[in-house]
Every structure is written in C-alpha cells, then in structure tokens.
C-alpha cells in the first residue's frame, strides 16, 4: 500500500478521504521539498498549513527577530517570542503542530550567493519576502533553475497571488519588468496592512503549494489574482509570457 504509518493515516485522514488526494497524494506531500522564503505575514500561514498538511521537508529562510509590530498578522509567532529569532520561533511552533515534518532552518538573508545551492534542495518555492530586491532575485533564480514558485504580495487591503512554472509560464518580470524605484511603493510599515489580508493571501499560497504537490486541479499559471479586501472581491488578470522579458524572454539580459 502507501508508505504511510498508522499515525500518518489518522493524522491526514481528512486529506486521504478526498479522492483527488488519497493515500497517493498524501505520500507525495510526505516526499515534497518546499522552500519558504520569509516567516512573516505571508510565511506564517504558508508554514502553518504546509506543516499541518504533512509537507515532508520544509525549508525556512529568515533573518529577522520577532518584533511587537509583527504580532498583529504574523501568526506563527507569539507574545513570549518577542525578541527571538523568527526562524527559531517559527520552528518551535511548527514542531508543535506536526513533529512528523522535517524542518530545515536557515537563519540568513537570501542573497545571490546563497540562493542557488539552496534552490537545489527544494522543488517548490514560496515567496513571502518583504522587499523588492529579494523578490526579483528569487524570481530570476527560480526561472533560471526552472523551479515552480508561488508568488504573493500584500499591502493595505490588497493582495496578489501568482503561481509561476519557472521558464514555462509567465514570470513576475513578465508583468512587473523592473523593481519600482526605492520609495515609490510604500511598505506595510509605512502604508499599513490589515492583518487578516496576510492570512488570506498566505493561505491561498499554501493552497497552491498543496495543489502543485498533489497534482490536484489547475495551478494559477499565467494568471494573476488580485484580492481586494475592501470590496471583498478577487480580480483575475491573464498574464502572458513577455517575449521581451529580461529573464524568461527570447533574449534574456539577466543570466
């Protein structure tokens, strides 16, 4: 039968009972290798759901400490964690949820020097980064290494989700060619973020990851979903690969 223990069969019973997932899908989750970049607003729900779902091996890269202003939305961390490294705090919470999951912790910032060796260890990448330079670095590296990636962004009452099959579907640069100049796009610290919006977007990212792993349904490829909490509406924008894209176009300038 499936390579699942009795405990796993019970723990994941509500997955296994779904015909689209079943024991085979749960086993795929057990074999999965997912890298989550950032354990903040988006990373929190992503890590919580992936851990609970039994996503076999989860890599977590984060270089910040828990600040009191994080707690309004970064639900992986608790008040007693103030001042702790987010990677440690995240790991502790995740282990409490599901000790069966293997967690790799990287207490560092993602840079051009560490990104490629890191990507080699994982099949799917989740973007929960907090700045544009890292977001573009992640996009470019994932396109080059043909990794599947679930992109997410949040600001004020809005969110954005896009799933990218590196080198095959439209990438982030196909839609947003260059990072905005520093200072033109406000950060959550400057413009604010409704806490639960991070939960909505991060949970959608987690859903996409679970779909990618199990092969259920249709990924959000070549589509960008914008969430507007004020209207409580979703707007889907079709995204096409841009032949002039500097990283996945016909004559890439970023190599």
């Amino acid at each position: 039968m499936f390579n699942l223990t009795e405990e796993e069969i019970q723990r994941y019973a509500r997955h296994i009972i779904l015909p689209e997932v079943g024991g085979a899908g749960q086993e795929k989750l057990k074999q999965a290798r997912v890298l989550v970049v950032g354990a903040g607003g988006l990373g929190s729900p992503v890590l919580l759901y992936l851990t609970a779902a039994g996503g076999g091996k989860i890599g977590l890269i984060e270089d910040d400490v828990v600040d009191i202003t994080n707690l309004q939305r970064q639900v992986l961390h608790f008040t007693p964690d103030l001042g702790r490294h987010k990677a440690e705090s995240a790991e502790e919470t995740m282990k409490k949820i599901n000790p069966l999951v293997e967690i790799d912790v990287y207490k560092e910032r993602l840079t051009k020097d560490n990104i490629f060796p890191l990507l080699e260890k994982y099949d799917i990448v989740v973007d929960g980064v907090d700045n544009f330079p890292t977001r573009y670095l992640l996009n470019d590296a994932c396109v080059m290494k043909r990794k599947r990636r679930v992109e997410g962004g949040i600001l004020r009452f809005m969110g954005l989700i896009m799933t990218i099959d590196g080198g095959s579907s439209a990438c982030y640069r196909c839609v947003f060619e260059e990072p905005p100049p520093p200072g033109t796009v406000p950060s959550c610290a400057e413009a604010g973020i409704l806490g639960a919006v991070a939960g909505v977007v991060g949970t959608l990212q987690a859903t996409e990851v679970l779909k990618l792993i199990t092969g259920v349904g249709k990924p959000l490829y070549n589509r960008m979903l914008q969430f507007d909490a004020e209207e409580l509406s979703f707007h889907e924008v079709k995204a096409q690969r841009n032949p002039k894209c500097p990283v996945c176009g016909e004559n890439p300038t970023i190599t």
């Binding site: 910032r109 929960g128 977001r135 962004g153 600001l155 947003f176 200072g183 796009v185 959550c188 610290a189």
Partner: peptide
C-alpha cells in the same frame, strides 16, 4: 484596462 499593483511587503530596501 487592468491595474496591476506592486505589492512588496514589509520594507522598501534590505
């Protein structure tokens, strides 16, 4: 017309 918002997250520059 679609308006595609840049949403970066927490900080402007590392």
């Amino acid at each position: 017309i679609d308006i595609l918002y840049f949403m970066g997250g927490g900080i402007v520059q590392p």
